Amino acid sequence: MASILKVENLNSYIGQYTILQGVDIEVKKGEAIAILGRNGAGKSTLLKTIMGLVNTRSGSILLGEDSLVGIPTYDIANKGIGYVPEDYGVFDYLTIAENLKLAIRNDTKDGDDRIAKVYDIFPDLRKASERMARTLSGGQRQMLSISRALVNDNKIILIDEPSKGLAPVVIETLAVALKEISKESTILLVEQNFSLACAIASRYYIINEGRTVVNGKIEDLIQDTQLQATHLGI
């Protein structure tokens, strides 16, 4: 099966500091891939580099056959990449309904149907659709952020630390929703919560000090406690 997203020998920098120093990943259609690693390993920077928010020094980023290197972030989004940042990325002074409508790209023909489907996945958002985003709980804001990526027919969705700062009971609800989303969407997930990542992803890549160091099937990683201890501190 052809790759949806392929990153090869990616090096990127912020200011004078090189953050990624040789990252390789490949995501095929329908997969849910987890990017794992210790804090500061470069996981979030990888997603930001794919989205053009961090400068690429060298290497390649391909969406299908299209290079994303040097392209403005809005063009990358228009090519079919949904991005859920770790700081939610919602408009505080707009309602849930307004946030969702604003996220729909001009080329999306079934936006209303997609919003209805989002409400089916996250019933709490339907109930609170006329509330401003700033009044929502952390879990609801995360649901809204993910939903904003779902209202378009994206080729892949990048999700950065969805469980960050959330209570365990909320994480359980989020895990069920993300598992449901993964049945129809291709997902690249950065997640520090090992249990959540294992519940959603089928394959993984571990990044350490800005480099891809190991990859494989999630089911094998679950059994390999030595690998978990070495690279994830579990």
Rank of each mutant, 00 (worst) to 15 (best):
A2L: 11
S3H: 11
I4S: 02
K6F: 09
E8N: 15
E8K: 15
L10G: 08
S12M: 10
S12F: 05
I14M: 14
Q16D: 15
Q16G: 12
Y17A: 15
Y17D: 10
I19N: 05
I19Y: 03
L20Q: 08
L20E: 05
G22F: 04
V23G: 08
D24T: 11
I25F: 13
K29A: 10
I35G: 05
G37R: 01
G37K: 00
G40Q: 08
G40K: 10
S44I: 10
T45H: 13
L46P: 12
K48Y: 01
T49W: 10
I50R: 02
I50W: 01
M51F: 11
G52F: 01
G52L: 03
V54R: 06
R57V: 02
S60N: 09
I61T: 12
L63K: 09
G64L: 04
E65A: 01
E65Y: 03
S67H: 01
S67W: 00
D75H: 09
N78D: 13
N78W: 06
G80W: 00
I81V: 10
V84F: 08
V84Q: 02
P85I: 03
E86R: 07
D87R: 14
Y88I: 08
Y88A: 00
G89F: 11
V90E: 01
F91D: 01
Y93S: 11
L94T: 00
A97M: 11
E98Y: 08
N99Q: 09
L102E: 12
A103K: 05
I104S: 09
R105A: 13
N106T: 13
N106P: 05
D110M: 06
G111P: 10
D112M: 01
D112K: 14
D113Y: 12
R114K: 15
I115G: 02
V118N: 00
Y119I: 02
F122L: 05
P123V: 07
D124M: 11
K127Y: 07
A128W: 01
S129M: 13
R131A: 09
R131P: 02
M132L: 11
T135I: 02
L136F: 08
S137P: 06
G139W: 00
Q142Y: 00
S147L: 08
A149E: 06
D153K: 15
D153V: 02
I159Y: 09
E161M: 12
E161V: 09
S163V: 13
K164N: 15
K164V: 14
L166D: 06
A167N: 04
P168Y: 12
P168G: 09
I171N: 03
E172H: 13
T173A: 14
L174G: 02
A175M: 12
A175N: 07
V176G: 06
L178Y: 06
K179L: 04
E180D: 15
E180R: 12
I181T: 11
S182C: 10
E184P: 03
S185F: 08
S185M: 03
L188E: 08
L189D: 02
V190G: 13
Q192C: 12
N193W: 00
F194E: 04
C198S: 15
C198L: 04
Y204K: 04
Y205R: 07
Y205I: 06
I206D: 05
N208S: 13
R211V: 07
R211K: 15
T212L: 07
E219V: 14
L221D: 03
L221I: 07
Q223F: 09
Q226M: 13
Q228V: 06
H231Q: 01
L232R: 04
G233A: 08
